[in-house]
């Protein structure tokens, strides 16, 4: 995994502020393995609270917090649901 401990802490802290204390975050995509390639950060979020129509607002807020601390870079956030790609993210990803 190619995130520093500080970056991981930033991501988890922001996710818990925005989505709730019990929120789980997976890192997948190119940053989850150790090959030095790619600058994107792909995150899978399992929010603590059920969807309340505020998903987009929360996602935007989360991105804002991350960009402030991690700088401007491509961050993709995927909400956890039943799609096959979510399963793939779990299988290939790393829980933060």
């Amino acid at each position: 995994m190619r995130l520093t401990p500080k970056q991981i802490e930033t991501i988890l802290s922001a996710a818990r502020i925005v989505f709730g204390q019990e929120t789980e975050v997976w890192l997948f995509g190119s940053r989850a393995d150790d090959t030095p390639r790619g600058g994107d950060i792909d995150l899978l979020i399992h929010p603590a609270h059920p969807a309340d129509g505020q998903t987009l607002a929360r996602k935007i807020r989360f991105l804002g917090l991350l960009e402030r601390d991690l700088g401007e870079r491509k961050i993709d956030i995927m909400p956890g649901d039943q799609r096959p790609i979510v399963q793939i993210a779990h299988e290939t990803g790393v829980k933060l």
Partner: peptide, 15 residues
Amino acid sequence: LDLRRIRNEFAHDYP
């Protein structure tokens, strides 16, 4: 920047 982040949502990579 928030409005721009919304714009990025429309160009989302995932299915």
